[in-house]
Design a protein around this nucleic acid. Structure first.
Lengths: 339, 339
DNA sequence: ATTAGCACTCGCCGAGGGTGAGTGCCATCG
DNA sequence: CGATGGCACTCACCCTCGGCGAGTGCTAAT
């Protein structure tokens, strides 16, 4: 019994099932794929594959469908990421380059990915913590309130208002602004602790209280994981899956509304690798996503990505195509933000 | 034949149908509501109501369901907005007051409304155009780039970067900043044209080019309707409607993803009245929302609201309850933003 | 190891018949 | 004249029951 052919059979089953959404039997398998053997032989292979847990049959007298384990083997060893065509790549590039600011880039990226994959698309905003700072602006709002605006190299702007204890602090704002900008320019938030502490020492003791408050805001911004924003598009694609019972899309929509859940998933996935990562069904530890797969990739830099994008859909998805789209959009996104 | 009783019958039909989601017949009608007449009498009334277009029967031998016209009459004349209980109001108030900034207020409001109504909730950010400005900040980013930050009384912050033509403009930035703030403080964007034009004249002719550019950004921000942001929650509630065929939720999800569509609907609705407004089924001119009703209200001020909130669900919804929730959340939102 | 043959399982489909909810109409009653 | 009881009729829903066919597993032959 050839081990290679068994894997061929698994690949054929996955491809057929993804295409037709129907359990696939031994007869159609030999008809549609040139396997060169008879249905009976395939049946033996299928029995072995089922024994090993890669496929299952929904009913006694029906064909087989892949299990999560089967999909996993498929994406790991059996499918090649099929590159997009030149016109497709061109279209992506042009569409993203038309964006006018960061919000627009992210918005276009997420819609594009939803369109390309016909799945739900998710794009995380470039991480504040890992972005290099371009500028810090301090704006006195009133006697005892100060607006702090952080601007990153990627164009993201974050603001925070702080209540000051001493009301006579205005005079030193210009100096503080100047010094801060010297110290932060081009650095990432994540690398700022030491420089800021050093800078604080340089001030006269009576001013340090104000300085510390401002520094604290900067560092709090760093700490707040909640500030990681993300946008979504293509939820209507969930309802596209034909006769899919609505009992299955509800928990998915619920999970999608919990940004915390999504952020955790995306973050966990990036740990695996710098390239495209796939989580299949039960692999994402979330009850509502048991029949859902996620394809994700980082963008912004190779080593330690700024943030992540992903496509999410039923486990029976076109993995090769989805992975290609996710990878492509991530790459062009990186290019745009770097440029 | 009593006209009053006919309306009672219509009300009973709407209430029963909303509750059970099943066509309601003459027998259960007299059983569940104390109408004081026999089923035969009800049948005569129902025939008249059907003739007038308020109800219809899906099949020959089934009960009646309300038409859009029937729901319309119901919300206009037959249903009283049932006020929330004191604990409910208290809970809303407390939950919203815990918010730390504008984003948090809006986020909490939309989740709360989705929870209360068990529908899809939409909250529009306070309109930039109608908000009073608190402050304008100008930040020179480099030789030829200037960051303009607008801060409104409601706490919304909007920024824009402009490319300057003359690179020697930095010296007048402080003066421009000071003058701008004198002219804009407390005014609404929508009222700014005249004061800004007047201010421009006060500058030396060689500086007016820069001044005009900055003024233009402020006015462009005013013009851009696209800047009207909105957030959504509770899409999972669409799938809650029991055995509802998924063919009906897909176009709704699609419509919801087009922010433009939603914004237009909300804007149109506010024109009707300052209070709670309802659009039923075909009344919203959008193919995907033919079986969907929207309940909306403005918030922020009585005369000309800052923005709107709304709840969206199947035409067979609990109008009285939904209207009460929408109105309550809108009121507390107004209170929070004013305080 | 592969394959042809074969018996077996079982989900799917359409036909048929009974049931009951609901209606419309009509004659009757207060 | 409106309300009502009676009655025939329609028709969606449900259940049952074969027939069909896809698909399987097993076994014996190559």
């Amino acid at each position: 019994m050839s081990e290679d052919r068994r894997l061929d059979v698994l690949r054929a089953i996955v491809e057929d099932y993804v295409l037709t959404h129907e359990p696939v039997g031994s007869r159609v398998l030999v008809e549609r794929h040139s396997l060169g053997v008879s249905p009976a032989t395939i049946r033996n292979d299928m029995a072995a594959l089922e024994e090993a847990g890669y496929i299952a049959q929904p009913h006694t007298s029906a064909g087989r469908i892949p299990t999560d384990k089967g999909y996993r083997l498929f994406v790991d060893r059996l499918s090649a990421v099929k590159p997009l065509s030149a016109p497709e790549r061109k279209a992506i590039s042009v569409f993203l380059e038309e964006a006018v600011d960061l919000d627009d880039v992210v918005d276009r990226a997420v819609r594009l990915l939803a369109q390309l994959t016909q799945q739900v698309a998710v794009v995380q905003y470039p991480s504040l913590r890992r972005s290099a700072l371009r500028h810090i602006e301090l704006v006195p709002m009133s006697e005892d309130r100060l607006l702090v605006v952080l601007i990153t190299e990627t164009g993201r702007v974050e603001q925070r208002i702080i209540e000051l204890e001493s009301s006579s602090s205005e005079p030193i704002v210009p100096e503080l602004r100047a010094r801060l900008n010297v110290h932060v320019a081009g650095r990432r938030l994540i690398d700022l602790s030491a420089p800021l502490a050093e800078m604080t020492e340089a001030f006269a003791p009576e001013d340090r209280s104000l300085v510390r408050q401002v520094v604290k805001v900067v560092e709090d911004t760093l700490a707040e994981a909640t500030e990681e924003r993300l946008v979504m598009a293509g939820t209507a694609n969930l309802a596209r899956t034909g006769t899919d019972f609505p009992g299955t899309i509800r928990p998915v929509l619920e999970a999608l509304e919990e940004n915390v859940v999504l952020l955790r998933l995306l973050t966990e996935m990036a740990a695996d690798s710098a390239g495209v990562t796939v989580r299949i069904g039960h692999e994402n530890q979330h009850a509502g996503l048991a029949e859902t797969s996620i394809v994700a990739a980082g963008y912004g830099a190779d080593g330690e990505p700024l943030a992540r994008i992903g496509a999410l859909g039923p486990t029976r998805m076109d993995y090769a195509g989805t992975m290609a789209s996710v990878r492509a959009v991530a790459r062009y996104l990186s290019r745009i933000l770097a440029g």
